[in-house]
Design a binder for these strands. Structure first.
Lengths: 195, 195
DNA sequence: TATGGTTCCTAACGTTCGTTAGCAAGCCAT
DNA sequence: ATGGCTTGCTAACGAACGTTAGGAACCATA
C-alpha cells in the first residue's frame, strides 16, 4: 500500500470507520455489528484484522496523544526562546492537531475513559504531563513579564477549554480554513494572556 | 418531603445517582444494575419509580435546558438595555447554570445524543435556539458599536467552547467559588469582545 | 494446477442488557 | 386488626453484546 494511494487497507478502513462511529455515537454505544455493517462485512470478520474493540479505541487515543506530544516538543525545542514564544507555538500546534482529524480528536477528548487498565492510567498521565507543560510555559512567561494572569492554572484550564470544543464545530468545508482557524484561535487565546 | 429536608425521596435519589453515574461513565456504559447497586437496591426495583432508563436521561437533559433558557430570558428581559449588557448577563447566567450542578451539566452537554426521537430533535432545536440568541446579541452589539468581532458566529462558537469544558474541571471545593468563577470567565469572555 | 495465506461468512457461545411479572414485606390509614 | 398502597426482591424474558471457531472463498505464488 503506497502512502499516496487513496485505497486503504482493510485495517485502515476499520480504524477510520470506527473513529467516525465512536465519535458520532460514542464508544460504548457503537456495536461491532454496526461497525461491520458500515464496512460492508459481518462483525465476526473484523477479528481477522484486530484483536478487540478496545484495541481500536486504544489506537485512536494514543495516536492522537502522540501527535499532541510531538507538536509540543517541536514547539518548545529551542531552549533559547522565551516562554511566550513557546506558548504561542504550542497553542498553534494544539489547535492544528485538533482540526487535523476532528473525529479522532473528539474520540481522544471524550472516549478515553472507556480504556481498561493499565492503558487508562497511562493515558491520564499523558494528559497531565501535557497540561503541566502549558501551565509551566504560562508561569514562566508570567515570571519573565511577557505574560500576565493572576493564576497560571486557571489560564491553562480556560485555554484548553477554549479549544476543546473545536472538533464539535469545525468543518473542513467551512468558510475558515485550518490556517485561519489556527491563527484566529491562537491570537485570541494568546492575546488574553499577553501583556 | 419538605424542600429543606436533606432526606431525598427514592426517586430523587435515583435521579441524583443516575446523574453522577451518567456523568462519570457515560449513559450507554452505565447499566441499571450498576445504578441499583449504587442505590443499595436491585435493578428490578428501580422500575417501581421510573418507566425506563431513558426517562432518567430525558429528565436530566431537559431540566438543565430549562435552566439555561430561564437564565437567558431573565438576562434579556429588559428590552431597553443594550445588547452588550444582555450578553454580559447571559454569559454570567450560562456559567452559573453550568457550575450549579456540574454532573447534570456534563450529562446535558455530552449525553443528549442518546435520546430517542422525538425528544432528540426537540433537544437539538432547543440548543440551536439558545445559541442563536447569543449570536443575535453579539451581532446586535457589533451593530451598535459596543462589541467588535469579525464574525459573530465564530465568536458565539468560541464563547460556548470556553465554558463548555467548565464542568470537567470546576470543583465546588476548589479555591475559587461560584461567584469568582462566574466573574472571571464572564470578564474574560466579555473582554474579548468589548470595544 | 496445487498450495498456503488471507479474508470473510456463519453459527454459536457466554455474558450482559433493559425490563417485566409475580410475590412478599413494610407502611399507613381506617 | 384489616385492607390498600408502595416498595423491593427475585426469577426470568427477549434482545443485544463482543468474540470464537470452523469452513469456504479468494488470491498470490511456485
Amino acid at each position: 500500500m503506497e502512502a499516496t494511494s487513496p485505497i486503504l487497507s482493510r485495517k485502515a478502513q476499520i480504524d477510520q470507520t470506527a473513529t467516525a462511529l465512536f465519535r458520532r455515537r460514542g464508544y460504548a454505544a457503537t456495536s461491532m455489528r454496526e461497525l461491520a455493517a458500515a464496512l460492508g462485512i459481518e462483525a465476526g470478520s473484523i477479528y481477522s484484522h484486530i484483536k478487540s474493540k478496545e484495541e481500536l479505541l486504544h489506537r485512536i487515543c494514543f495516536r492522537v496523544a502522540d501527535e499532541f506530544m510531538a507538536g509540543l516538543r517541536s514547539a518548545t525545542a529551542d531552549d533559547t526562546e522565551p516562554a511566550a514564544i513557546h506558548l504561542r507555538r504550542a497553542i498553534d500546534s494544539h489547535v492544528r492537531v485538533l482540526i487535523h482529524d476532528t473525529d479522532a480528536s473528539a474520540v481522544f477528548l471524550h472516549e478515553w475513559r472507556h480504556l481498561s487498565e493499565p492503558a487508562l492510567s497511562e493515558f491520564v498521565q499523558l494528559q497531565r504531563n501535557y497540561e503541566a507543560a502549558f501551565r509551566d510555559m504560562i508561569a514562566r512567561g508570567v515570571a519573565d513579564g511577557a505574560l500576565r494572569t493572576p493564576d497560571p492554572a486557571f489560564a491553562t484550564l480556560t485555554l484548553f477549554a477554549s479549544v476543546t470544543w473545536l472538533p464539535n464545530w469545525y468543518r473542513p468545508d467551512g468558510k475558515l480554513g485550518p490556517d485561519q482557524i489556527a491563527e484566529r484561535l491562537t491570537n485570541q487565546l494568546f492575546d488574553g494572556l499577553a501583556t
